[in-house]
Amino acid sequence: MEPTLQNLTLGTSHAWYRALYTEHRGAFVQWAARQYGVREEEARDAFQEAVIVLYRKAQGDDLASLNCSLRTYLFAVGRNQLLSRMRVLRKQEDLHEEFHGIPDEALATNGMERQEKEATAELVRQRLAELKPDDRRVLELYYLEGKDMDAVAEALGLKNRNVAKKKKHFALQRLIALVRSAKMLLL
C-alpha cells in the first residue's frame, strides 16, 4: 500500500522519504522563491527539514489525526521552517542593533535542547560500536535505515519478521544496559 500521511509508520523506508523529497523539492523551491524571494539553497534546506519533521512525526505516530495530503503537509512545514529562519535572522539583526552581546534566550534554549539531543545521539553511537556486529546491524536496519521487520528479516537472513523482532528486542536490551551504565563526560 502506498504510504499516505495517515498511514505512515516507523517502518517506512528512507528510500521512500528520499523519493518523496525529490518528487516535491523542485515545486517547493519555485514556490518559496516566488512567495518569499529565498535562494534555492535556503528553500532546499527548509524542505529537507520538512521531510525530517515528517519522518520524526511518523516515529511517534503523531500523524493519524491530520487530514491533508503529504504534499500539503510538507509545504506547510517547509513554509514554517522558512518563516522561522527569517524571524530568527530579523531577531538577530534587531538584537545586534539594540542589545549588543545579550544572547537570545529562546535561541539559547533551542541550542541547549539540540546539544542534549546530540550528546544523547553521540552516547548511543559509541555504545552501538560496543555491541556485537549482529546486534548492531539489527538496530541499524530498523532505527537508522528505517526498514520494516520483513525487510530486516530478509537483510539478516532470518526466518520471518517475528524472529527479527525478537532479535531487535534483545539487541535493544543490550544497548539499554550499556546506556544505563554510562554517564557522559566530555573529555
Binding site: I52, Y55, R56, Q59, K117, E118, T120, A121, E122, L123, V124, R125, R127, L128, L139, Y143, L144, E145, G146, L172, L175, I176, V179
Partner: peptide, 12 residues
C-alpha cells in the same frame, strides 16, 4: 534515551 538516540541517528 537509547531509543531517542537511535532515532536521532536515523534522522542524521
Amino acid at each position: 534515551r537509547a531509543i531517542e538516540g537511535l532515532r536521532t541517528l536515523g534522522e542524521e
